[in-house]
Measured scan of single mutants.
Amino acid sequence: AQVHVDGVTYDFDNPEEAEKFAREMAKRKGGTVEVKNDQWHVE
């Protein structure tokens, strides 16, 4: 699973880890999390 944050792509073998990371980053940035094509996007 991939997580996109500020133009940087992070690869995770485990989708749950990807989701956890995406939500944590969004919380830190005060942003939102979107899922597109099985990829997490932190805005």
Rank of each mutant, 00 (worst) to 15 (best):
A1T: 14
Q2M: 08
Q2N: 04
Q2L: 09
Q2F: 08
V3S: 01
V3Y: 01
V3A: 02
V3L: 02
H4R: 09
H4V: 15
H4G: 02
H4L: 13
H4Q: 08
H4M: 12
H4F: 14
H4A: 05
V5W: 07
V5K: 01
V5Y: 11
D6M: 09
D6N: 11
D6I: 02
G7F: 03
G7H: 04
G7M: 02
G7A: 03
V8S: 05
V8M: 12
V8H: 10
V8N: 07
V8E: 07
V8T: 09
T9N: 03
T9A: 06
T9E: 03
T9P: 03
T9W: 12
T9H: 05
Y10P: 00
Y10S: 00
Y10K: 01
Y10V: 02
Y10I: 04
Y10M: 02
D11F: 15
F12S: 00
F12P: 00
F12A: 01
F12L: 05
D13Y: 05
D13K: 10
D13Q: 10
N14L: 06
N14M: 04
N14G: 07
N14T: 14
N14E: 06
N14H: 07
P15I: 11
P15R: 12
P15Y: 12
P15S: 11
P15F: 11
E16R: 10
E16Y: 12
E17T: 07
E17S: 07
A18K: 01
A18E: 00
A18T: 00
A18I: 01
A18Y: 02
E19I: 07
E19G: 03
E19V: 04
E19H: 04
K20A: 13
K20Y: 08
K20G: 05
K20V: 08
K20I: 10
K20T: 08
F21E: 00
F21T: 00
F21G: 00
F21W: 09
F21A: 02
F21Y: 05
F21Q: 01
A22F: 03
A22V: 02
A22H: 01
A22I: 03
A22P: 00
A22L: 05
R23I: 09
R23S: 05
R23H: 09
R23L: 09
E24Q: 08
E24R: 08
E24F: 08
E24A: 11
E24V: 05
M25W: 08
M25L: 11
M25T: 06
M25E: 08
M25G: 00
A26D: 01
A26R: 05
K27G: 07
R28T: 09
R28I: 13
R28P: 02
R28G: 05
R28Y: 11
R28D: 06
R28L: 14
R28V: 11
K29S: 13
K29Y: 15
K29P: 04
K29Q: 11
K29F: 15
K29T: 15
K29D: 05
K29M: 15
G30H: 09
G30V: 03
G30Q: 07
G31Y: 14
G31E: 06
G31N: 04
G31H: 10
G31Q: 07
T32S: 09
T32P: 04
T32A: 07
T32F: 12
T32Y: 14
V33H: 04
V33F: 08
V33T: 05
V33M: 06
V33W: 05
E34A: 14
E34Y: 15
E34H: 14
E34L: 14
E34K: 14
E34G: 09
V35K: 14
V35D: 04
V35R: 14
V35T: 07
V35I: 13
V35Y: 15
K36S: 09
K36G: 06
K36I: 14
K36L: 12
K36A: 08
K36E: 09
N37Q: 09
N37M: 09
N37T: 05
N37R: 07
N37V: 07
D38W: 09
D38E: 10
D38Y: 10
D38G: 15
Q39A: 12
Q39T: 11
Q39V: 14
W40R: 04
W40I: 08
W40H: 05
W40T: 04
W40A: 04
W40P: 05
W40E: 04
W40F: 13
H41K: 07
H41Y: 15
V42M: 04
V42L: 04
V42T: 04
V42P: 04
E43I: 15
E43Y: 15
E43W: 14
E43H: 14
E43F: 15
